[in-house]
Design a protein around this nucleic acid. Sequence first.
DNA 1: CACATAAACGGAGGTGCCTCCGTTTATTTA
DNA 2: TAAATAAACGGAGGCACCTCCGTTTATGTG
Lengths: 203, 203
Amino acid sequence: MPDQEMTAKAKRDAQAPKPLRADAQRNRDRLVEVAAQAFAADGVDASLEEIAKRAGVGIGTLYRHFPTREHLVEVVYRREVEGLCHAAEELAREHAADVALELWMQRFVDYIATKRGLATSLRLLLTTNSTLFSDTSGRVSGAMRSLIEAAAASGKIRADVDASDVMHALGGIYSAPNTPDWRERSGRLVKLLMDGLRFGARG
Amino acid sequence: MPDQEMTAKAKRDAQAPKPLRADAQRNRDRLVEVAAQAFAADGVDASLEEIAKRAGVGIGTLYRHFPTREHLVEVVYRREVEGLCHAAEELAREHAADVALELWMQRFVDYIATKRGLATSLRLLLTTNSTLFSDTSGRVSGAMRSLIEAAAASGKIRADVDASDVMHALGGIYSAPNTPDWRERSGRLVKLLMDGLRFGARG
DNA sequence: CACATAAACGGAGGTGCCTCCGTTTATTTA
DNA sequence: TAAATAAACGGAGGCACCTCCGTTTATGTG
């Protein structure tokens, strides 16, 4: 067995378990996409068969990729977090620092909504997969931190607050039960908070 | 409406929600009994339809009494705890204090085994029903405490230990994974512990 | 390009879940 | 004891889960 070949294979095995076949990758992505919509619309108990059907694959394919419902939930949730963090970078690039922060916080509200929706299933995951929570909450608060620091540095918002203060202020969003007007209330909370942050800013 | 009647009904409503009809009570008891066996034998995922069948009732009856699997699990678990505590009293009555303690600890091993078996489902319950854990662990440690105090008072075991020391010593039982010889190991642990407790006793 | 083959697909089928409602029965009242 | 009725029963039916395996397909090789 040639050395080069051996090394390449060994490296693959070590970290990236599988270079998925093209069609498999397509189907997998499709499934996650559809599942995200389904969970958002119908809650975590959305029918897996329905998800498979809407993704245009057989139920067997779904189960091969995600052996349990929780696996699928986890992937969807991580994707949500990924999207949220990515949005932070994008908004920062395309808007003034304070606007970026505000838009991002609005999106954060959506994220919380998802999180609430998935909560029951996540609770199970959290007992099993204890890195999930620390991973994601670290990433999210990191994203927020950089938006706030940028906004403060640019003088668009006051400089005497820090990310954890703002996170704390957003805490109110968690606590509100699922009233139908929850989204609007949260939107107003974000605006209010932004007013406070802008008040007395340098620029 | 006569006063007496009113009072009787009010009292009932206040604490004992339902004086179950005789047949209903019988069926309910039967179900719990069978479920306990089934969970012990097949784990928490035992088929509910099978349980209903073995209890000689329709599946509808099972669901009327226990709207979710977790309800049933909880009742079975509480019954387990009840049995364990009751055994403590009985053993104390029928054996010398040190023997009672030893026999009870052997039975405690069985209880832990059940608890492990039900663990997955219990975890869900514990997030919902937060009194469950405090209720039961209080009752169990109370039972142990009285056995130990009685044994110490009678001079059958040394007096310089207390219940929480022993509980701590038994902690090892929790940690062992589900190896096939877990039961024997735990049995030996109990014996060993008893030897230690008897050593240097007064009587 | 044709072939080999490992990888992925998909859905039939068997099982369990749970609701719904017509039937049966324990208990109360006269 | 007989009739009235509230309570409980039970299982058919419909839906979702998940496994298993015969079929299809992407990809590497000559």
